[in-house]
Design a protein around this nucleic acid. Structure first.
Lengths: 382, 382
DNA sequence: CTACGCCGTGAATCTGGGG
DNA sequence: TCCCCAGATTCACGGCGTA
């Protein structure tokens, strides 16, 4: 039984349109080798729930650039980023967006990331194609490359555009999941996240970076948590080293990647094979309940529903932690944090929904702490 | 004596092009009543140093949107044709940007602010018009309006696009001023500033806000400090309540505003009259090193500040060299060259700033030779 | 074992004046 | 228009080696 079948019927019902082709006949969890436009043409209408696209930025770089210490900046000089004119870039953009619009389900959404070099062309083409912009999201880089020559402001962000298929189209937005991720205030349109470096950055056999523009998993993690459900199908037409596939697998989403270059396909294949799905409870989004009063975890501790000193574990008892009087959790290894933070830290995930990840032994057996919260809520209501 | 005359000749010289019309014949520090395109047409070529534009955002409220023939776009209608509306907005944008490009000096810059509703159209039109994007700046609102329905991310930012007139055009960027404003680290492309509220928010006679999209003065303050000099002429073709004019006056810049509606002109006029210019010392930007008078190394040798035969080393004393009477350096290995050349050669670097690389033993200890130059400069000034 | 410092590096439209 | 050369210019991390 696949993950899809576990989605509650009420959520599945939000999918307004019927899949034109059974999922079994789609190339699921595979990298399709080829040109993105040609390859999308071979996919049926309205078959994917979400598209994440990281197209070439058309950087138009000039000569070499040196840091003040004399070292040279490793520039993006790949052929795939070269276009003769803005008109050529616009044609390319319109062509792939046309196919993207066709294969997207009517209640699906598309995300496209870019910089000032290309994002205005992309945004215009999205609107002209009939996509409806829901938000533009700013990825604020925590650690951008400086402007070495002191000629401009540090280019410290990139822009993502999030669109539904049409103005009145339904779409998935896991509002409460995003709010929980953001310390219980609404998630804003600016996200501060580090660039991809350290152990996450894939290297080729020579030890050089495998791809010049690898995106951080935290970015895709937030995108997918925000607007897909487990079992949903995510397409990435510019797959590169497969960040989209890795995060999809980790979050229990299905995926299709399209990539032209064998070297990237090879790296992505290995990477995704080495990625393990997260604990199932951690990937479920918080049920969308309107007007649910906010209950801090500390309130349950204060109120004696989860007394200090209680031991909580994940569903499979791989990790455990002790509840402190101030509502924080302490793990055996010495780490301390909120239910969300500690869950993320132990799993080495960028974020975690502590309410569904942490469980506690009750009269009903091992239950997520959210169950305790729900009972408390019910009591408050009565 | 006007402020302009106080600008050092070295800076004025950076203004490459001659004003087509003497500044005295321009309508300075005035609000011109009328349509922005028609009014710009009456201004001469290459007459303004900077343009700040806050064009109408909303594609569906056609109040500010007119077809080229003057008829109004009827957009608030369930049956409205999206393409027609976007096309009308694009025509309007191209028309005013064409005039903006014409009246901007060759070394001037333009700033346009917008949201995801219009900024992609604006950015595309800017690039198509030949403007060269220098940065896109994100105004991160410290206190944005929440998304009440919980259907999207909180729209917590707006975007500004900063362009020079052409790819190779010179432009003013007060790098060191921006760095100083930002605790001595490079100013980034994301600016966190509060929205306009409280006492700054202008009210009409009924106590309602005078303008729906009044921009905070802090935003204009940073823009003008970054890329204009005192005495420069700033144009705002969508003047509204005159934030641009107020900040220009405060910072000793000259300004021209264009506004169609009498009620805004009235509010702006009162506001600017009540704004006092800052003390002159407060409005000067930090001098850019590039604009400071050059002192040849040989001059210091001639003047006896660094006598021939002196030994200079790098900060860690890994390399040393002897100063020759002609201002060249000679290293022990026989290499001879300017302070820059020899520094680069010894480090095997593509280039080197000899002023900061080479050090000399003084009463203050081991100092970069630039310190000697700075002291010499200070003596010359007094 | 920790602390500290050095080194490498990241989607970058990255100098300007004089001869 | 091109060449030459003076000289201005970097932030946050992660990894690794040394004290």
């Amino acid at each position: 039984m696949g993950v899809l079948e576990k989605i509650p019927a009420t959520r599945r019902a939000r999918r307004a349109n019927v899949e034109a082709v059974p999922a079994a006949r789609l190339p699921l969890n595979e990298i399709l080798r080829g040109d993105c436009i040609e390859t999308m043409r071979a996919l049926p209408d309205r078959c994917v729930d979400m598209i994440f696209a990281d197209p070439p930025y058309n950087l138009q770089l000039g000569g070499d650039l040196h840091r003040p210490d004399g070292s040279q900046v490793d520039a993006v000089d790949d052929d795939w980023d070269k276009f003769d004119t803005f008109a050529a870039y616009d044609r390319f953009t319109r062509d792939w967006l046309r196919e993207a619009h066709r294969i997207l389900k009517d209640d699906g959404t598309i995300w496209v990331i870019g910089s000032y070099h290309n994002i205005f062309r992309v945004g215009t083409a999205l609107q002209d194609q009939g996509f409806w912009v829901l938000n533009d999201i700013v990825w604020r880089k925590a650690n951008p490359m400086p402007n070495f020559k002191g000629t401009r402001f540090t280019n410290a962000h990139e822009t993502l555009i999030w669109c539904s298929k049409a103005e009145k189209a339904k779409y998935t937005f896991n509002y409460r999941t995003m709010k929980a991720l953001n310390d219980d205030v609404q998630m804003r349109s600016d996200w501060t996240l580090p660039i991809c470096s350290g152990g996450e950055r894939l290297k080729d056999d020579d030890g050089h970076k495998a791809h010049p523009t690898q995106k951080p998993e935290s970015l895709l993690y937030r995108v997918m948590l925000a607007c897909t459900e487990p079992g949903d199908l995510v397409l990435d037409p510019f797959f590169g080293t497969g960040t989209t596939g890795a995060v999809a697998r980790r979050l229990g989403r299905r995926w299709i990647g399209i990539e032209r270059e064998d070297k990237y396909i090879k790296v992505a294949t290995q990477r995704i094979a080495a990625t393990l799905p997260l604990d199932e409870s951690a990937m479920m989004s918080i049920p969308e309940k309107k007007a649910m009063p906010r209950i801090a975890f500390g309130l349950l501790v204060e109120g004696g529903l989860i007394p200090p000193g209680s031991v909580v574990t994940d569903a499979r008892r791989r990790w455990s932690a002790t509840v402190r009087a101030d509502g924080m959790l302490a793990s055996g290894c010495g780490a301390i944090g909120s239910i969300h933070r500690l869950g993320a830290q132990l799993q080495k995930a960028p974020s975690c929904n502590g309410w569904s990840f942490w469980h506690i032994e009750t009269a009903q057996g091992l239950e997520p702490i959210d169950a305790v919260r729900q009972r408390h809520l019910a009591e408050l209501g009565s």
